[in-house]
């Protein structure tokens, strides 16, 4: 008794978990405002993901799936959940971990170590693709060439494409990338602010992930976290509004085609990575960055030289579409 009284006193406020009514609640789910314990949270979280996978028929038995693994919290959770559900519900999937090494000294080392731990922990084969191998340039070398400004453009474009190239090497059917609700709400908001309707509908399509580095991303993130404080469901509501966004059928949408140079998906003649790479290799690293200068004029000239076919140039280069 004496000891019990001395044991860490429970805080007055936290209540019992509303699911099991046994353990102490450890968090409040923003989605439902339920107070829930750690164990029950894992259970409902994993079950909801399973239901989403089944309802949206995300996978077919026998498929090979690459999990984009950065070593961060989102992709680590994804790797755990997918390997767990695959085993528990017999999805019959061949899962792989796919990591991108940008070649930034002292930056990726830690997270690649985490990915290697994931490889062992979940028994998933790991493939690492590097910028150096794919493009002939490490990020360190790119930064040396173009400076600290604008290098996010290279990194973002190259990373998204590196994932796809790695996926092709692994001969997988699909790539799964981990994003949290904050990421997606932020993307919806940014696409609305930018008036980018094509990507607004794509960004909430369930199997599509986009990567879009931008300076004002940080502001959008802060804004949605402020909203969440006032109304915890706000983040999920923003995602819902992105899902429900309908575009009038008379609106002309940019087509998604393929890059004439490398075959990667692109809504323009050359994909962004090829434009950026061309700039690097020709010693004109500003090519492909910023607005109409440089890229557009320069590339339009190239396009005209190559062919006089219809221009599929539909947007400014600064919009960073893939």
């Amino acid at each position: 008794m004496e000891e019990e009284a001395h044991a860490k006193p429970k805080k007055a406020m936290p209540r019992q978990c509303c699911v099991c009514n046994q353990r102490r609640a450890a968090l409040k789910r923003p989605k439902t405002l339920d107070q829930i314990c750690k164990e029950c949270f894992y259970e409902v979280f994993e079950e909801e993901i399973h239901q989403d996978i089944v309802e949206n028929q995300l996978f077919k038995p026998g498929e090979r799936i690459a999990i984009g693994a950065s070593g961060g919290k989102d992709s680590t959770v994804l790797a755990y959940v997918l390997s767990e559900l695959n085993r528990r519900h017999n999805y019959g999937l061949d899962l792989f971990l796919l990591s991108v090494d940008e070649g930034i000294t002292g930056y990726r080392d830690d997270s690649l170590e985490t990915v290697k731990r994931n490889e062992i922990q979940y028994g998933l084969p790991l493939k690492v693709v590097s910028y150096k191998d794919l493009y002939g340039w490490t990020m360190d070398e790119i930064v040396k060439m173009i400076g600290l400004k604008n290098n996010c453009t290279f990194c973002g474009v190259f990373r998204r494409q590196a994932l796809d190239r790695g996926a092709a090497m692994l001969k997988v059917d699909k790539v799964a990338t981990g994003h949290n609700a904050d990421d997606i709400a932020e993307t919806v908001l940014l696409n609305i602010l930018r008036g980018d309707i094509a990507r607004l509908s794509r960004c909430t399509a369930i199997t599509t992930g986009i990567y879009s580095p931008n300076a004002y991303r940080g502001f959008a993130r802060e804004f949605i976290k402020d909203l969440e404080r006032i109304r915890p469901r706000a983040i999920l509501d923003i995602i819902k509004s992105g899902e429900d966004f309908r575009i009038s059928t008379s609106t002309k949408m940019p087509e998604q085609g393929t890059c004439e140079r490398c075959g990667y998906i692109s809504s323009q003649k050359w994909c962004k990575a090829c434009v950026l790479l061309e700039g690097l290799n020709r010693g004109l690293p500003k090519l492909g960055i910023g607005r109409s200068r440089g890229l557009n004029t320069d590339r339009n000239k190239d396009v005209k030289e190559i062919s006089v076919a219809k221009s599929i140039e539909s947007k400014q280069c600064g919009t960073l579409d893939f």
């Binding site: 406020m13 609640a25 968090l27």
Partner: peptide, 11 residues
């Protein structure tokens, strides 16, 4: 988190 519990639950 205060002792592994989200502080929203403890005030």
């Amino acid at each position: 988190l205060v002792n592994d519990c989200d502080w929203e639950l403890s005030g």
